[in-house]
């Protein structure tokens, strides 16, 4: 692998490095500036205060729940978009990806008019005894709304790169579509699914606008870490910076986990997960 890498022609002009460095600085410098602002003497008491820990716990729980929801809803969606063929497929893809570019506040307003008390489904849900507004469920819904495209995009890309060849072989050998999905397709795109799930988790963790608009802000119920930071900033800038650092640390850990190997996100495990004799040829 290393030998092949060294021999590969990169051909990046020097000026590209210069611009790339400026791009990297744009991201890294503000983070460094924030770290420089941290009041280390009070850091531990600030981040271990009751309200901070409650917010962090709520953030981790709701993000985990929305990641699970993203997987349950996003895997079929990615499959349909990557492999299916039906009228309106392109429109559906654009619509599913919309939360990526939509301001989160707009997402929150849309959710409010869907699941809110006066919303499209709100009355039906209320009859069924479900009240979503101002509940932790609302937070999870808001996070899933904004994070779902991350999973769908990652997985759809992985599915396209993998191609349907192995599935076709499995089908000719008599496997049912569900068996093919379970035994061939999903193992093949597992790295893509994993990095998509991690990205969804990270996006859920950072969700702010839709949550504030749709779910409200109450300690232990709907006030996630970003909302707590926003509120702390009003009175205690030190606490806000300390909590921001905690959020950045968690996000960095999560993203590093997703990209710990440069092969993650690609169907790089093909050789290992399948025993098809043509495997190495198919990867190229």
């Amino acid at each position: 692998m290393t030998a092949r890498k060294a021999a590969t022609y990169t051909g990046i002009p020097a000026w590209v490095y210069a611009v790339a460095a400026a791009g990297a600085l744009l991201v890294v410098l503000p983070l460094a500036a924030m770290v420089a602002k941290v009041n280390w003497a009070n850091f531990i008491p600030l981040v271990t205060s009751e309200s901070s820990l409650t917010a962090l716990g709520l953030s981790l729980r709701t993000s985990a729940a929305s990641t699970v929801l993203c997987i349950i809803l996003g895997v079929p969606l990615a499959l349909v978009l990557a492999r299916g063929s039906f009228p309106g497929q392109r429109v559906l893809r654009s619509l599913v990806l919309l939360p990526l570019v939509l301001p989160p506040v707009v997402g929150g307003i849309a959710l409010l008019y869907t699941f809110g008390r006066q919303g499209l489904l709100g009355r039906t849900l209320e009859v069924a005894g479900l009240q979503i507004a101002f509940s932790t469920t609302a937070v999870v819904l808001a996070q899933t709304f904004v994070a779902l495209p991350f999973l769908v995009v990652s997985l759809e890309g992985a599915l396209r790169i993998a191609g349907p060849r192995y599935e076709a072989v499995a089908a000719t050998l008599g496997a049912s579509p569900s068996t093919v999905l379970r035994r061939v397709t999903l193992p093949l795109v597992l790295p893509g699914l994993a990095s998509g799930a991690v990205l969804s988790f990270a996006r859920s963790l950072g969700e702010f606008g839709a949550t504030l608009t749709f779910a409200g802000s109450l300690q232990g119920v709907t006030r996630t870490l970003p909302l707590e930071i926003y509120l702390q900033r009003e009175t205690d800038a030190d606490a806000a910076v300390a909590l921001s650092l905690v959020l950045v640390a968690v996000a960095v850990a999560v993203v590093a986990l997703a990209y710990r190997s440069p092969r993650a996100g690609r169907p790089a495990t093909v050789e290992r997960t399948t025993t098809a004799p043509a495997a190495s040829g198919a990867v190229r």
């Binding site: 008390r117 101002f134 504030l212 409200g216 006030r223």
Partner: peptide
């Protein structure tokens, strides 16, 4: 015992206007 403690008056008003 509010169901939500908002960071701004605008957010409070929004939740009343929307009927939530």
């Amino acid at each position: 015992s509010p169901v939500s403690e908002e960071s701004s008056v605008t957010d409070v008003l929004g939740k009343v206007i929307s009927g939530e």
